[in-house]
C-alpha cells in the first residue's frame, strides 16, 4: 500500500517540476468527493427505503412475508394484494376496499381545489390592487390564523356546519378545506399579483376596465404559473388530509387517508401486511404522481408557500 502511494506522490511531484499548466490535476476520488457522495448516497438509502419496502411487500404473498426479510425482493410477484386493497379490504362492515375512499377523496378534492383557488385568487387580487380600509388588517388576521392550531377551531366549525346542515356531508368538508387553505393561497396570489407591474393595472383602469374586467382579462391570464403552483399545493394538501376528514365526515364519506388508516390499523382479523402496503401505496400514489410530474414547480410551490408563510 505504502509503495503505491509513494509512487503517486512521486508522479505528482514530477508534474510540479515540469511547470503547472492547464487545469490542476485532480484525483477523481478526492477525500471531499468521497465524503459528499458517500453521505448523499447513505442518506438516500434512508429516504428510499420505505418506498422500496412498501413496493416489495405489496408484491409478495403472505407466506413469503411470514418467512421474514422485509427487504428482500419478492420471489414470486403477485398483484393480488393490490386488487384486494382496492376492491375487497374491509373497514368495519364495509368490504368494498379503498376504492370507496378513493372516490370520496376525488369528490372532496375537485370542488375544494376549485373553490379555494377561486376565492383565494380573488382575495389576493383585491389585496394587491384594490386595497381598502382594513384590508391589510383582515389579511394579517388571516395569516396569523394559519399558525393557530386547528384544534382550537375544530368544535366551533362543527357547530357552524351543523347550523347550515352540512355536518358529515362532503360539502361541509369542502368548505373546511377552503377556509383552511385560504391563508396560504391568498398570500401566494397576493404576492404574485403584487409583482405584476402596477402600470398594467393603471393602464387597464384608464381604459375603463373595472374590478372583474381587470381580474378576468388581465390578471387571471397572467396568473397561470401561480395557478399551477396553487393547484399542486392544494391537491397534495387536501388529498393528504386526515384530521378534517375524520372529524367532519361520517364513515360512508370518509376520505381515502381515513379509510386507509382504518383498514391498516383495524384490530380485527389477521394482519395482511401485503394488502396494507398496497393500500398505503395506493393512497400515496396521487400526491407522488403529482410530485414527480410537476418536479420543479412542486418545489417552487412549497418553497413559496413555506418561506413566506
Amino acid at each position: 500500500m505504502s509503495n503505491v502511494s509513494d509512487l503517486n506522490m512521486g508522479a505528482i511531484a514530477g508534474q510540479i517540476d515540469s511547470e503547472p499548466r492547464g487545469p490542476r490535476p485532480r484525483r477523481r476520488f478526492s477525500r471531499a468527493n468521497i465524503f459528499i457522495y458517500g453521505t448523499l448516497l447513505l442518506v438516500s438509502v434512508y429516504y428510499l427505503l420505505p418506498l422500496y419496502v412498501m413496493i416489495v411487500t405489496s408484491l409478495k404473498g403472505m407466506p413469503e412475508i411470514r418467512m421474514g426479510n422485509v427487504f428482500g425482493p419478492p420471489m414470486e410477484i403477485t398483484f393480488e394484494p393490490w386488487v384486494k386493497a382496492w376492491a375487497e379490504a374491509c373497514t368495519g362492515i364495509n368490504c368494498d376496499g379503498l376504492s370507496r375512499g378513493f372516490w370520496n377523496s376525488v369528490q372532496i378534492l375537485v370542488p375544494s381545489v376549485l373553490l379555494s383557488i377561486v376565492i383565494a385568487s380573488v382575495n389576493g387580487y383585491a389585496l394587491s390592487n384594490w386595497k381598502f380600509r382594513g384590508s391589510e388588517l383582515f389579511f394579517t388576521i388571516l395569516i396569523i390564523g394559519a399558525f393557530i392550531p386547528y384544534q382550537t377551531m375544530l368544535y366551533p366549525i362543527v357547530i357552524m356546519l351543523r347550523e347550515i346542515g352540512l355536518m358529515g356531508d362532503l360539502g361541509g368538508l369542502v368548505l373546511v378545506h377552503t377556509v383552511f387553505g385560504m391563508p396560504i393561497l391568498t398570500l401566494l396570489f397576493r404576492n404574485y399579483f403584487a409583482s405584476i407591474p402596477e402600470e398594467l393595472f393603471k393602464a387597464a383602469r384608464v381604459d375603463g376596465a373595472g374590478f372583474w374586467g381587470i381580474y378576468f382579462q388581465i390578471m387571471l391570464p397572467m396568473a397561470l404559473p401561480i395557478l399551477v403552483v396553487a393547484v399542486i399545493l392544494q391537491v397534495t394538501g387536501i388529498w393528504n388530509d386526515f384530521l378534517f376528514g375524520v372529524i367532519y365526515t361520517k364513515p360512508e364519506t370518509y376520505p381515502m387517508t381515513v379509510q386507509l388508516n382504518n383498514i391498516v390499523n383495524s384490530v380485527q382479523g389477521v394482519k395482511e401486511y401485503n394488502v396494507n402496503m398496497a393500500a398505503t401505496l395506493l393512497t400515496g400514489l396521487v400526491p407522488l404522481a403529482i410530485y414527480f410530474v410537476s418536479g420543479k414547480l412542486f418545489v417552487r410551490g412549497i418553497a413559496a408557500g413555506a418561506v413566506k408563510g
Binding site: 510540479i16 511547470e19 503547472p20 499548466r21 492547464g22 487545469p23 490542476r24 490535476p25
Partner: peptide
C-alpha cells in the same frame, strides 16, 4: 480553473 495555459505572478507559476 483554466482549461489550458499558464499564469505567472511575480515570476512564480501560480496556475495551480
Amino acid at each position: 480553473e483554466v482549461t489550458d495555459g499558464q499564469i505567472f505572478i511575480k515570476g512564480k507559476n501560480v496556475t495551480w
